[in-house]
Nucleic acid binder design. Structure first.
Lengths: 377, 377
DNA sequence: TTGTATGCGTTATCAC
DNA sequence: GTGATAACGCATACAA
């Protein structure tokens, strides 16, 4: 391995001078500088980030800890993070933790040992010991898309999330307007704030429109395909009446659809399905269902920006940013005309499968700093 | 920050002894050991990976350099990599490079400076200077899903990829069997081997069935949505006859579909569409189109296993693994019955959008080590 | 404008 | 069984 001393030797200067050239600090004569640069090029010298990190106590690396890199919502968040990181010359240590307590813990331990400059995490539950460690060790931290239970006013964490409450409210209201009264909601892990908030929004919509909230129709599980299948089975096993299903994320939605297909239950003839987290910018994923689309890319981008600003100034007050969501309404040809009596965008994908699509930005329900979505999304 | 000396002080031993306890090496008396462990717990000591890395010349980290984390194919590959990494206690430095030469170069430079133990990369083109550096610096490297142009027999790189040639051949043969004779293929960047191989497979299918290969119907561009749109426009601008489109990956497919919708061209009434890289295990992504599904998770998993084995033994001969693909045939209700005169799986998603789906493992065309897909996929 | 000396936190080597 | 010391590659305080 070629080190700074090798360069120094070749250039006939001391290694301090080389260091100065690299960090273009202090005074170095033009001649020395060019000599050193030549030597660097000749040897293909690349400074060791490790040695540098040790000396500076700064690694220009942060950790990104996500529940599931296979889920397009998180993928898009990651993309937002990556784009900012690259511009600012940060590297990303990536960890997939599957909403698994143990994996999250192990990821965080690794992260501590790696001495990253900051952490972005979608925590599994409200507050864990691990999160507390982030606070105690004063690691700059951004909480992605979720809330913490515990009062942590002094923790100096930053938060970026979608507006789950209004999103779920809008989605539920859409179903109610279509005439549904018995709406089942299949949500994620009850410990995640989004799973709870989406149920809250659902409840607000019902009660706001004079429909009683029935706990029998509310299910918590996990944000994964298998959970969607399982929750649907649980719902069917109860043998209670319902005409629509609200899947609290895309994975649950997939599970629901699969299980419905498996049982030969038709959508939307027998049951309507809507879901949260339509992360496709393109609308061809899950093309039949009305859904909530979050500004996932913006969530990632904003989070990375917050993190970097905090790394540069740890005394910043805690910031909390909530981004709005979008309701994507999709009807079949006939249903749309019946409901609205006007034409929409026609998606002639295949015989009889025409589709109308409309998109509505949702009014924020939450107080606080609701940022406008960026124009470039 | 609490260091090994802090622990030593508290435990009343030298830091060497603490190191021994941590790495459970050598002889340490049970009493000392438990004292040290207590001190570690009390202080919440976590060893510094950086210092450790410097001393050992080993970071237990590898780099994963992918074209697009937003694409479900790469996402699934990444997931396979992550799962193995986690089990083997490796961290992953992740870089998104967008098939962009400059970004790839910068990622690799960062990677060198980080002194990762190994690199997994889907290289942008056949051979770049950067890749050569990986060889020269003897960084254990796995090339993901692509081939290199240049002869690199002595480079000791490992390779894991899908069987693009047979996949494309099978997909094209499917179209030919449906009666298509003029099939346009919209492929990726001409410098990526997959873009070329998919065209080769396409050509083999045509010529194998006595249909002349027409270069006018062959387009290279990029593996992204915008390129799909652009290539389709280029195709239409030529005003030549065609009845089917072969999109060489899912992103191009999305672009094609969007542009077709935009122009009110119906699928499959006016033109048939098939595509490569249906990475959804669930079949609800892009549900209308016949497609090739690769064993993306296995590609990632295998790659990580190869990398780790090479890290542990750099003298291993270069290995090349090609995983087969699967042809997912999807018909509309009517088309299926017409074509096969038998029933399939009915997907009653919505009025009139019934769908039949069948899946066929593709016989490998390539010689060499073709591994069976794992059962757990 | 340049160089010398020191230390970041760890582990390998050798000595006791 | 345990400890002193050197070394990994770099950047800084200080000296020249």
């Amino acid at each position: 391995m070629v080190t700074i001393s090798d360069v120094a030797k070749l250039a006939g200067v001391s290694l301090v001078t080389v260091s100065r050239v690299i960090n273009n600090a202090d005074y170095v004569s033009d001649k020395t500088r060019s000599n050193v640069k030549k030597a660097i090029a000749e040897l293909g010298y690349i400074p060791s980030a490790m040695a540098r990190g040790m000396r500076l106590n700064r690694t220009f690396t942060f950790a990104l800890i996500l529940p599931d890199i296979t889920n397009s919502f998180w993928t898009t968040v990651a993309r937002g993070v990556e784009d900012v990181a690259q511009i600012q010359d940060y590297s990303i240590l990536f960890y997939n933790v599957d909403e698994d307590q143990k994996k999250q813990k192990r990821a965080l331990e690794t992260v501590f040992s790696q001495q990253v400059d900051g952490v972005m995490i979608a925590p599994h539950d409200g507050v864990t010991e691990n999160l507390k460690l982030l606070h105690q060790r004063k690691v700059p931290t951004v909480i992605l898309d979720r809330k913490l239970d515990q009062d942590i006013a002094d923790w100096k964490f930053d938060f970026v999330r979608g507006d789950s409450i209004s999103g779920a409210k809008a989605l539920t209201e859409h179903l109610i307007k279509l005439g549904h009264r018995k709406i089942a909601i299949l949500s994620g892990d009850v410990r995640t704030s989004t799973a709870k908030d989406r149920v809250s929004g659902y409840r607000m919509a019902l009660e706001g429109m004079g429909i009683p909230y029935d706990p029998e129709l509310v299910f918590f599980g996990e944000y994964r395909i298998s959970a969607g299948e399982k929750l649907l089975r649980a719902l069917l096993d109860k043998e209670i009446e319902f005409s629509a299903i609200f899947a609290a994320n895309n994975a649950i939605g997939l599970g629901v659809v699969q299980e419905l297909l498996h049982r030969n239950i038709r959508i939307p003839d027998d049951v309507a399905v809507v879901y949260y987290d339509d992360s496709s910018k393109d609308g061809t994923y899950f093309p039949f269902f009305t859904s909530i689309q979050q500004y996932a890319y913006e969530i990632g981008k904003t989070a990375a920006e917050l993190l970097i600003s905090r790394i540069n100034d740890r005394e910043l007050p805690s910031r909390e940013i909530t981004l709005p969501s979008k309701l994507i309404v999709r009807y079949s040809c006939g249903a749309y005309q019946k409901a609205t009596n006007r034409p929409g965008l026609r998606l002639p994908i295949m015989d009889g499968a025409e589709l109308y699509e409309e998109s509505h930005l949702i009014e924020p329900f939450l107080n606080g700093d609701i940022r406008e979505p960026y124009a470039n999304f």
